[in-house]
Design a protein around this nucleic acid. Structure first.
Lengths: 337, 337
DNA sequence: AATCCGCGTCGAAGCGCTTCGATAACCTAT
DNA sequence: ATAGGTTATCGAAGCGCTTCGACGCGGATT
């Protein structure tokens, strides 16, 4: 393995000079710089990560905590993770993947061992048990998701409250009076996951304002669960003409069931989904949807974390404004017979 | 940040003693060990990762290269990644997430900087451009997937050839004579992705052996592409009674289309899927399927890599035997009219 | 001509850990 | 009693890098 010292010798300069060429923290004559750079190239030198971390107390690594929950929609997580990794590289950081398995202790380990310079937490719960540790160790961090108490924290998330409101508005505007929400799995609500509750909040308050009736039913993913949920909804509120789905694994089953029951979309029932664009576009019906901007969230999170690590940036809550894209699944409410 | 030296002082021993308590590489009296352990606990000591890496030339990090391809089925990747991260932790390793973005250079960077002790490569192509570098730097590594030339490499994968054969066998045994394969996106084949080609190989050779007719059509995911592909298949081979799908994002569209066209599953058409169990079970029809054992693959990969890093283990190709689970989507071929 | 300044470079210290050899204490076998 | 072997501990060197202070040099300022 090639070391700094070898590069220095090869270029006929001192080790510190090579270091300064690399970091740019002191001025170097063009001549020397070129010689050094040439030696680096010729020898195929790569700075040793451990030594660098030790000497500078900076690892150039960002830890990403991805929980292991199986009831969460995985592709979104993955997309965020990939976006985080990619953006991080663009800033010169690598990403350490931590699963939820280790629990809150992971926070302590990362903070204590200096293995990462900062961390990004995904799937934050309203009262997340990792947060006290985060504050205590005051580890530079960014949350993807919104806890109940955001004081002293930087958070990035889709504005799910506005998202809920937007969905209701869209349907209400088309004359729908009875709207049902097909939500995430019950466990998600029991866990008080922020985004689910905030969406619900937005849905409810906006429908109250607009005077439409709203029914909310959690739903496990899959065909069977969806069948039960849909039957129950239509039983309780036969006049339901607008559906809002916030559960990726319920989307396709829902559409299949509606078809099967002879309910046309959007003529008989309008459907709005809260899901990644790809899902909305690849579904058997082009779905009117509010996109979950996974990439954007990942990028924002990294940008903010890097800013913090550079001493810029401050605690703040970044809510990304939702955008509703009208596709083929929504239309005017059928006239009441 | 608490250091080894502080722990040593607190416990009234030398730094090296603390180190030996931690590593267990020399015997320590029970008394001393307890004092040290107590100090570690009381001070909340965590060894500094950088220093440790520098001194020992081991980072306790495994790099995981996940390519960024959007035409690959993401959940499987994610599941593998999570399994890798979890198994790695169980062995005391952390996982560094590298996206394909950086390309083959990532291999050089990882090898050169010593940031990771070894690496796991996912989505390996038959003639993967990362492999020469891997051999050149002789970085301890494990591939998930099988390249054309496996000499000197350790690979873990589902036995896709056997998988293909198994699917054909199952259908042939039920009397199906005309079988069509709905494959991955064309780009996947153009890229010569190992698993796709090997599956095809297994499908073809087994159907030749069993004397059944086989049609293979790549298919982009989604509803529209599936519609086109299905129409073409039924046009070319109207007698097709068995379908094998190897493309997660085509599964649900396929089932919807069949329903729509009044073709009952499994009475008129039998469908076998090659996909994760979860997909097969959550589909609108319980699918007879060969599972893609993502977890197992991730675990195997880590186990083999760790074995290599410990000086145990050798180069070998581990092919996981496929298992076909019969669910509701396959049955006897309809009698020819 | 003396002084100051900034630029470019070097040497050395030190980051926190692992690990090797040395040493002291004790035990066992002669 | 002495050599030889364990066992438990310590001190010091060194891993490869960053960074601080110092130094020499040429040009601008007085």
């Amino acid at each position: 393995m090639v070391t700094l010292a070898e590069v220095a010798q090869h270029a006929g300069v001192s080790a510190s000079t090579v270091s300064y060429v690399l970091s740019g923290k002191r001025s170097i004559s063009a001549n020397t710089r070129q010689r050094v750079e040439r030696s680096i190239r010729e020898l195929g030198y790569h700075p040793n990560a451990g030594a660098r971390a030790l000497a500078s107390s900076k690892s150039n690594i960002i830890a990403l905590m991805v929980p292991l929950r199986t009831d969460m929609y995985v592709p979104v997580m993955m997309e965020i993770a990939i976006a985080v990794a990619t953006s991080a590289r663009a800033h010169g950081y690598d990403v350490l993947l931590l699963t939820g398995e280790e629990g809150p202790d992971a926070v302590r380990r990362v903070a204590g061992s200096g293995i990462a310079d900062g961390m990004i937490l995904m799937d934050v719960e309203l009262d997340d048990e990792r947060l006290p540790l985060l504050r205590e160790t005051d580890q530079p961090s960014v949350l993807i998701g919104l806890p109940a108490d955001t004081s002293g924290l930087t958070c990035v998330d889709l504005d799910f409250r506005a998202t809920g409101a937007l969905c209701v508005e869209h349907l209400a505007k088309q004359g729908h009076q009875d709207i049902a929400v097909i939500g995430e799995a019950p466990a998600v609500y029991e866990r008080h996951t922020g985004f689910a509750e905030r969406t619900l909040d937005g849905l409810r308050s906006r429908s109250r304002e607009l005077g439409v009736r709203l029914l909310h039913r959690p739903c496990e993913g899959g065909y069977d669960a969806m069948a039960v949920t849909l039957a129950r909804i239509l039983d309780e509120r036969p006049g339901t003409s607008g559906l809002i789905v916030q559960n990726e694994s319920a989307v396709e089953p829902l559409l299949a069931l509606l078809r099967q029951q002879g309910r046309a979309v959007p003529e008989d029932v309008s459907v709005v989904a809260i899901c990644p664009d790809q899902v909305a576009m690849q579904a058997s019906v082009r779905l009117t949807s509010v996109a979950i901007p996974a990439q954007e969230m990942g990028r924002h999170a990294v940008d903010h974390l890097v800013a913090k690590l550079d001493g810029r940036g401050s605690d703040e809550v970044v809510l990304i404004a939702p955008e509703l894209t009208v596709r083929g699944s929504t239309g005017p409410a059928p006239s009441r017979s």
